[in-house]
């Protein structure tokens, strides 16, 4: 019979035995060796029925299809653009995946130039190395002005909050426009720098205290001051 060796939400290190027996299945960040399930990453244990997986606590962003991310144009090729979205490898934005019509002989820099910050959606990921992105989505657009804040990708769900409660609260109080990318890049644009600064401080605070409970209440109090 299988036996689980760790508890839910335990911090485990690479090489730690999480469970033994064939009753459990290895998920993300877990591998099987003979009968044992072993952690291959530093992370939090998450058990869902028979599936044992790890929520990574650090490291680069792992691209997932359907995520909305913010990236920077780093290269332009014949077929489109290469963008840095914080993953190990650059993502590819093909001409046919853009929202605008682009003619055959068009100069691609007129659409997205080097260094442009663009909000994009991940279309397809092959073996977590080749990342195909698109701008054919409502949220996708070029981001002009404002500031970028980088946080740990694993803390993004806390910044967004349940059903977007946290981010909409920050938007309400600071009056800034905010876009949160799943890759941990947050774009903030407000009418004046003071408000942008407040939004940045709040987001940094959320990142720092992400593991605490009752975070929304605490941030509410912080914003009142």
């Amino acid at each position: 019979m299988g036996e689980l060796k760790v508890k839910e939400k335990d911090v485990v290190v690479p090489g730690e035995v999480l469970a033994n027996g064939m009753d459990f299945l290895p998920g993300e960040g877990v591998y099987r060796e003979k009968d044992d399930l072993i952690a291959s990453k530093l992370g939090l244990v998450n058990v869902n029925g028979r599936l044992v997986k790890l929520i990574p606590l650090s490291g680069r962003y792992i691209a997932k299809a359907g995520d909305t991310v913010i990236g920077e144009v780093v290269d332009i090729t014949f077929g489109g653009w290469l963008m840095n979205i914080g993953a190990v490898n650059n993502a590819n934005l093909s001409i046919k995946d853009t929202s605008e019509y682009i003619g055959r002989d068009a100069d691609l820099t007129q659409y997205y130039n080097f260094g442009d910050i663009v909000c994009v959606k991940i279309n397809k990921v092959i073996r977590s190395k080749m990342i195909d992105i698109t701008t054919k989505d409502q949220e996708c657009r070029k981001l002009k002005g404002g500031m970028l804040i980088k946080i740990n990708p694993s803390k993004v769900p806390r910044v967004i909050g349940k059903g977007g409660s946290m981010v909409s609260m920050i938007k309400e109080v600071t009056g800034c426009r905010i876009t949160v990318g799943q890759n941990g890049v947050v774009w903030v644009s407000g009418t004046d720098s003071k408000k942008e600064k407040l939004a940045r401080d709040v987001i940094k605070k959320i990142e720092k205290e992400a593991h605490r409970e009752g975070l929304t209440e605490k941030i509410k109090e912080f914003l009142k001051k």
């Binding site: 290190v13 690479p14 090489g15 072993i38 291959s40 530093l42 490291g59």
Partner: peptide, 11 residues
């Protein structure tokens, strides 16, 4: 290396 979040079999 573990802190950098890399895939590792062991320490």
């Amino acid at each position: 290396l573990a802190d950098a979040g890399l895939d590792m079999k062991d320490l």
